[in-house]
Nucleic acid binder design. Structure first.
Lengths: 148, 148
DNA sequence: CCGAATCCGTAATGATACTG
DNA sequence: CAGTATCATTACGGATTCGG
């Protein structure tokens, strides 16, 4: 176990001293940023969830994901494979068959994702109503103003 | 307490029946997607973390966030305010002074974010080494090929 | 000081055609 | 079947300028 840098303990609770400055370097090297970049895109979470039930082949994943193009499915799977979250297995047969499966690391991602999902479900109504209130309050800041 | 739709229990654990199809509608109405869209961008998490220590004014946030432009800070804060995660308080003085603060909802977001951070820190080494292995295995699939 | 408005470059995504 | 290559479109973010 390596000795953590002085700021690690604070970072672990997402708390920072009030006078801290978030520098470019901190942003670039942040593990959380890496994760957010991965799961923040349009398809990654869906693919991970679909793979939770076990290995699935490429065309299977595409059929199960309405609207995804082969290009983006390939791209999404490549990124997951590159990060060691998914394995790619080519079966030497014709026509070709390629299976994708979650690694243990990939599977473990569902833990924090579930935490995020729970928060999202708990607060979804509030967020939606907040948005509606915000939008309607700016769309027509006045309603009885004399037109002429 | 409202009766959850049939799929909710499954969704809560991020598990889906093996034959499910993720439709466009499911993606569009997904609370998790909303959250990922919010925290997945470049600045939101930083701003939320900076606000954990208490209210801060606009220029203060900008100084504390290296590289952010006024445009993006405004944009980030607007989105957070619209979602009810941050409040905006204008002090009627000159020069103007505007304070931003986390709401309880916004503050509660740090819970799941911390979960994600912990996962990120635990797996960062593995992800980094996976990437390195993946990249180097494709950059030079051969190393002893006879050049001529 | 705190923004809004505009312009612009880059990156993400999608459509389509082609290949082993 | 499982991709790759290319092109078009869009979204995101940054720089600059102007206003209250």
């Amino acid at each position: 176990m390596t000795t953590p840098p002085p700021g690690a303990r604070l970072a672990q609770e997402l708390a920072l001293p009030p006078d801290v400055r978030v520098t470019e370097a901190m942003r670039e090297h942040c593990p959380l940023r890496d994760t957010l970049d991965r799961i923040g895109d349009r398809w990654t979470v869906i693919v991970v969830v679909l793979l939770r039930g076990g290995p699935r082949r490429f065309s299977d994943l595409q059929r199960a994901t309405e609207g995804i193009s082969r290009r983006m499915l390939t791209h999404t799977l490549r990124n997951l494979e590159r990060d060691g979250l998914v394995t790619r297995t080519v079966h030497p047969c014709v026509p070709p068959r390629v299976d994708y499966a979650l690694t243990d690391e990939g599977s473990s991602l569902t833990g924090p994702l579930t935490g995020l999902l729970h928060w999202s479900m708990r607060h979804h109504d509030h967020v939606r109503s907040s948005r509606q209130a915000y939008d309607s309050s700016r769309q027509e800041p006045d309603a009885g103003g004399p037109p002429a």
